[in-house]
Design a protein around this nucleic acid. Sequence first.
DNA 1: TTGTAGGCGTTATCAC
DNA 2: GTGATAACGCCTACAA
Lengths: 331, 331
Amino acid sequence: MATARDVARKAGTSTAVVSYVFNNGPRGVAPATRQRVLAAARELGYRPNALARSLSSGRTRSIGLIVPDICNPYFAELARAIEDAAGTTGNLLLIADSALSADQERRHTRSLIDRQVDSVVLVSVRDEPDLREFFDAGVPVVALHPLSDRRLASSITIDYEAAAQRATEHLLAHGHRSVVLLNGPVESTGARQHRAGFDRAVAGAPGVRSRMVRSEISRHHAAEVAQELLQGPDRPRAVYCTTDEQAFGVLYAAHRSGLSVPADLAVVGFDGTRNCLVSIPALTTVQQPMEAMARRVVEILADRTVLEEPVHEVLGFEFIARDSSGGPAPG
Amino acid sequence: MATARDVARKAGTSTAVVSYVFNNGPRGVAPATRQRVLAAARELGYRPNALARSLSSGRTRSIGLIVPDICNPYFAELARAIEDAAGTTGNLLLIADSALSADQERRHTRSLIDRQVDSVVLVSVRDEPDLREFFDAGVPVVALHPLSDRRLASSITIDYEAAAQRATEHLLAHGHRSVVLLNGPVESTGARQHRAGFDRAVAGAPGVRSRMVRSEISRHHAAEVAQELLQGPDRPRAVYCTTDEQAFGVLYAAHRSGLSVPADLAVVGFDGTRNCLVSIPALTTVQQPMEAMARRVVEILADRTVLEEPVHEVLGFEFIARDSSGGPAPG
DNA sequence: TTGTAGGCGTTATCAC
DNA sequence: GTGATAACGCCTACAA
């Protein structure tokens, strides 16, 4: 592999000038010299060594993305959106999959810090991720969900409480008197907000029976939980799920239980993955503004002051009524 | 951030010894010295700088994984399996998503080479990926599909032709006389193998009408293509799809067309993603041996001689008959 | 405008 | 068993 020294020698100049050419600075280079350098580099097939460059400059031009479960299309789509938003800048997005394991998330946290990513986009499996570690290492973090501690990292999220309330009211407006909240597996800031919104909607509709059930954020586990729910006593008439994947699990469970959606059971999801459009039936959901989130994430991380002054933004969501809940509510 | 120099100073020794301690070699260290070094490191919160380490050692302890589409669960599950297989070795898996774009794949190729990943696992969107680039850079590659040029990289795959034949024969055994092969979007070694297996099966069943249709490897595009197929003249009775995602698109199209699966249309997929178990109806498919592939990939890449002597392995697959094709064939 | 040289933090060779 | 010290390849302050 050719090095800057080789190029300099061939172009009859110094490594400093080669560096100036390839970085467009910090010093200017005479046009003729620049041409000689570029020609030499092309001939030798020179490519700057990213490792050496990073070691020297202190920047790796890479962004870490930690997601709870890459097999969940929401996170895959999120990764795609972030890469699209960041891609043009020559930054590499390192996707780290926690596989729904807090331990794995911890390992990735270490690993990304050790590899000195310039910044991190985090979707945690825990309510209290290791923000301190990132902070101490000088790595700015933007979380894509509500945070219990807002001092060590930034966040971009939607108002889960408002979204949950909107979704639940939709189900109630369809006249359903027995509703279930299918929440995430553990207590967390986000889970609490879902519950608060759900409860508030129910409180506004006298005589409605409601309860909360928990499940992993996976189609399979949600299907199991839902199966039990649907075949047990006091079968609910409607379910609000805190992720699309859980909702798909519920659709499957309904199918297996011989129930028709939405005739026997109304289902609403949350995330707005593309699969909602091709599920059977099409899924009513809360659409997260993935592209806007991705854009803002990249913008925020480009501003190096966020480490000291975290930013917290709440973006708008869109509620989309489709077949799985019987379409738009009457009235 | 504390450096090895700081640790050495505090422990009253040299950076060389610190290095020996943290790498368990290549020289031994006296027990007492080792303890002093470890104590000093702990006190200072020392963590070796991965960049400097890589620059010096020439190894980054990272594996690049290039997938065509991270939003396709098959590739996400593959990533998970590879990470599981490699994870224990302290290696980081860098997941690069080509987003079904050859340009993007090219960019990732460059990027991973520049970042000096130790090796690459490749699932290409093209029939002729840039194997030469990797080879010239000294980066061993294992592809997880058949390769048109087997000299520059290794491959681990299943026998697509045999699998396609098996799947098609299954459909024919159910008595269907009009079958369609829903293949990938472009001609490629893999696509040719699927077609060969499909054709061979059809050739063995006189009087069967067959044709091939192409679609992107995505649920949505497959749904569009299938919609046209199912509502056009001479509607097929059975479809063999070269990926599960395409098959799910066909299921959706059938649903939209008012057709019942498998009563009106039999569908078979390929990949064996977990979603096959919770689709409506459950999907008959060719199960790829993901865990075994992942294990072999990691083993092969651990053996540094593969660069000069590529290895090509064909693993076994399993055909799994489920509801979407009417279950096991009679007889 | 360009060259020299020190530094980034490790690793590993070579003496002692 | 351990300590200097020269790489690894690049960046950039400083000097010219």
